[in-house]
Simulated assay, not measured.
Amino acid sequence: MHLLDHVSISVPDIEVARPFYDAVMDALGARKVYDRPAAVGYGERCSADDTASTFLAVYQGSGEVGDSKRHWCFKAPSRAQVDAFFQAGLSAGGRSDGEPGLRPHYHRDYYAAFLIDPAGNRVEAVCHAAPPAGEAA
């Protein structure tokens, strides 16, 4: 079961957020589905023919993010995509909140990286799969 249909992230300045989310979503293989003056969207919207997709909207909001510890986690099909997410986010103005690596306290193959976006939202990419046979953990 896919629990989430869509998620919206509010940022105080869409022009600062846009390059960050373009970079990290591209690293995860999520296509941009719209780009408007005050919002940008990624992923796939559900339809009657596709009920399992998930969609992300990043929009300009009026309030500050503050230290609310908002947390958004994105699935990555591979550990290499988690690494790419992290590097892309750093290159696009994000700050590290946890380098790519295993988090065995969640489960033995939980491989994740954490970033703080330019607005202060905490974002994560995770791969739950074990590494392919012959590849180091």
Rank of each mutant, 00 (worst) to 15 (best):
R79K: 04
A84M: 05
S62F: 07
G66Q: 08
G101I: 11
G66C: 03
G61T: 10
C73I: 04
Q87W: 00
A92E: 05
D67V: 00
G93R: 06
S68I: 06
Q81P: 03
E99H: 09
Q60I: 01
R95C: 02
P104K: 09
A52I: 12
V58L: 07
P100F: 08
P104Q: 09
A57S: 03
A52W: 13
E99N: 01
F74D: 02
G63F: 09
T54C: 10
L56S: 05
S96N: 03
H71T: 11
E64V: 10
Q87I: 01
V82Y: 01
R79L: 07
G98M: 05
E64D: 11
G98R: 05
Q60N: 02
Q60F: 02
A57T: 06
F86I: 02
R95A: 10
P104I: 01
G101M: 12
D97P: 00
A57V: 12
Q87R: 10
G98C: 07
K75E: 14
E64Q: 08
K75Y: 14
P77D: 15
F55E: 15
G89M: 00
V65H: 04
T54I: 10
A84W: 03
G61L: 08
C73G: 14
L102C: 01
A88Q: 04
S62G: 15
S78C: 11
P77K: 14
A52P: 01
P77F: 09
